[in-house]
Nucleic acid binder design. Structure first.
Length: 218
DNA sequence: TTGTGTTTTATTGCCTCC
DNA sequence: GGAGGCAATAAAACACAA
C-alpha cells in the first residue's frame, strides 16, 4: 500500500486528529471486559519523521529475545535497555517485541484451552450416545421379558384357574402381569413409537460418529 | 509473475497503577 | 500525570499456489 499516506481515498478513511479527540471525549468509557469501539487510527508517515520500513529481526536477535521471554514474560525498564544494547536494537523495539510475544502466547493458550474443552465435550457427547444406545437395548430386553411373562401367565391361567385363586387378588397371574406393565420403569420407557425413536437415535449417533471421525481424521 | 493468505512489526487509544 | 500493559488494527514481509 501507499507509504506516507495522504492519498485522497485514504484521507477519507482516516479521522483527523481533532475529530478523533472530539469523538473520544464523547465516547462513553468502556467497562472492563466490554468490547470497545475504536476510531480508525491515522496511517503512519504523516510527517512525524517515521521510517516506514519494517525491519525483520535477525535470527540471533529473535533467539536471544525468545530466551529472555522464556526467562521472564514481563520486561522491566532496566532489562529492556540491557537487551536493546546487547542486540543493537531500539529499546522500544524490544518492548514492542515483548508485547507482541505476550499476545501470541496468550492466543496460543486460548487455542489450547479451547482444544481441551472441545475434546472433553466430544468425549461426553460420545459417552451420551453410547449410553443412549445401551438404554434402548435394555428397553428391548425388557419388552421381550414382558412378552415372555405374558405368555407364561396366559398358559397357567387356562390350565388351572379356580375361584379361590382369583379371590387372592394381587397374587393372581393376571394381576402379576398388570403389576409388571405398570412398573414405573415400564411407564417411563413406554413402547409407543419405539422403533421410530430407535431409528432417530441410531441416525444421530452415526452422523455424530462420522463428524467426530472427520474432525480427528480417523 | 501475481494474487492471496499468514506472520511479524509497529502504532494507536484506552485502562490501571503508583 | 506518566509509565507500562493490553486490545485492536495497519501495514510490511513473507510463503505459496496457480
Amino acid at each position: 500500500m501507499s507509504e506516507g499516506g495522504g492519498s485522497p481515498v485514504e484521507e477519507k478513511m482516516l479521522f483527523s486528529s481533532s475529530l478523533a479527540s472530539e469523538l473520544c471525549s464523547q465516547m462513553p468509557q468502556a467497562s472492563v471486559g466490554e468490547t470497545r469501539t475504536r476510531r480508525r487510527r491515522k496511517a503512519k508517515g504523516d510527517g512525524a519523521g517515521g521510517d516506514a520500513k519494517k525491519k525483520r529481526l535477525r535470527g540471533e536477535q529473535l533467539k536471544f529475545l525468545e530466551m529472555s521471554f522464556q526467562d521472564e514474560r514481563k520486561l522491566e525498564s532496566g532489562r529492556k535497555v540491557h537487551l536493546a544494547t546487547e542486540l543493537g536494537l531500539d529499546p522500544k523495539q524490544v518492548a514492542v517485541w515483548f508485547q507482541n510475544r505476550r499476545a501470541r502466547h496468550k492466543n496460543k493458550q486460548v487455542e489450547e484451552a479451547y482444544a481441551k474443552l472441545k475434546m472433553a465435550h466430544d468425549a461426553v457427547v460420545f459417552e451420551k450416545c453410547h449410553l443412549e444406545k445401551e438404554v434402548f437395548k435394555l428397553k428391548g430386553k425388557l419388552l421381550e421379558a414382558e412378552e415372555e411373562i405374558r405368555k407364561l401367565s396366559l398358559g397357567t391361567s387356562t390350565a388351572g384357574a379356580s375361584g379361590s385363586n382369583a379371590e387372592r387378588g394381587g397374587s393372581s397371574p393376571s394381576s402379576s402381569l398388570s403389576t409388571v406393565s405398570h412398573h414405573p420403569l415400564v411407564g417411563e420407557f413406554g413402547v409407543e413409537g419405539e422403533a421410530d425413536l430407535m431409528n432417530i437415535q441410531e441416525y444421530n449417533f452415526n452422523s455424530y460418529m462420522m463428524e467426530w471421525a472427520n474432525f480427528y481424521g480417523v
